[in-house]
Design a binder for these strands. Structure first.
Lengths: 197, 197
DNA sequence: CATTGTGTATTCATTGGTCGGTATACTTTT
DNA sequence: AAAAGTATACCGACCAATGAATACACAATG
């Protein structure tokens, strides 16, 4: 089978992603991944140099789909920017109601690897969060004249990360919705402020 | 030495706290704690039934001092409630500049133990976060007539947790200050809203 | 027939947790 | 008051299980 090995590789990443997300990257062993992906550890180490590499691959692979989902939620929702952002948080709340929801995989990985700032997975998480923030900043730039849309995007991100953390801590998705309300309040305040000045 | 052995116990918790906070609860072994505390593992297990118990003790012991520090920061700062809360975030930003800063120990432990919602340490973290939120709600209740001070307290907490997460992810304490600005904006908006209605 | 991909078996360190033993101090018995 | 018991607080050595990672072997493809 000297074909494109993307199949196996993808299966490994998909399996690892599931396990890493559910239990945390440190709690999941390579043995567990191998077993769940129905192949041996040797094959794992053929496709990935180390566990750390696999963890990084897990987050890198999650970057695009995650951002795309946010964008879809945003675009498909009607109303003002404030409404659209608030709706994004409502969608987030909805996902948080699933039994298998375990917060934000990026944040949880950063939390677990807090003592390894240079870890490739941490870098992947940083890049992802920045990407979402940048997208928000662009999106807000139009409707928010003058006011620093970058700051506002950061504040929305802060509320989003906080919502992930709080909803996970208290096992209560309503924190997501509360965060959404806060976000729309901030956006409207920024609009009012800029038009007044 | 059939005296109160609180000495040793405290030393264990203090040592464990340092290690758990620095590297995460799953990354630190009981052997490592024993060695750092300069005693044998047998003694560890004399004072704590299991590692999970020790993790829980670590967070339980951190609850009070943490809250007390927030309260002190709040009380010692001048100005309006909005100013005081913003100052709290500035103090948080200051701590985040220390080399040994690794985010919020409570949140990071919850993130690590996301697959064990019943874990005593997770409960301790939940209790702590709720306690801070309740204190904030009380504090805001006076100056915020009518407006739901509880919701506002939740929003400030969301910003705080988000600030911990973002500042850790990007290794940039300025997220803390941005969060503080957002918090004071929300508080002022709530005050304006309630006086208008 | 060599390169790619996979399986078997193994290595060696580390993990959470335990067994048995000991020294000290406080209490009870004599 | 001395002897004997008892609870506290500790240690050295150990264990079965598991961790990440590898050495070696072999099948399929082109």
């Amino acid at each position: 089978m000297a074909k494109t090995d993307t199949d196996t590789r993808e299966r490994i990443v998909a399996t690892a992603a599931k396990l890493f997300y559910m239990s945390g990257v440190r709690a999941v062993s390579m043995d567990a991944i191998a077993e769940k992906a129905d192949l041996t550890k040797r094959t794992l180490y053929y496709h990935f140099r180390s566990k750390d590499d696999l963890i990084a691959a897990y987050l890198e692979e999650r970057d695009h789909p995650n951002l795309a989902l946010f964008q879809r939620w945003y675009e498909e929702s009607p109303g003002t920017v404030a409404d659209k952002v608030e709706s994004l948080f409502r969608n987030l709340a909805q996902t948080a109601r699933h039994t298998k929801w375990r917060g934000c995989g990026f944040l949880r990985t950063v939390a677990e690897l807090a003592d390894m700032p240079g870890h490739p997975a941490v870098k992947a998480a940083t890049v992802h969060k920045k990407r979402v923030e940048d997208w928000l900043a662009e999106t807000l730039e139009g409707p928010i004249p003058h006011a620093d849309s970058k700051i506002l995007a950061q504040q929305v991100m802060l509320l989003m990360d906080g919502a992930f953390a709080a909803a996970l801590t208290h096992r209560d998705p309503r924190y997501m919705e509360t965060a959404g309300k806060a976000a729309s309040t901030l956006i409207r305040a920024a609009q009012a402020g800029s038009s007044a000045a």
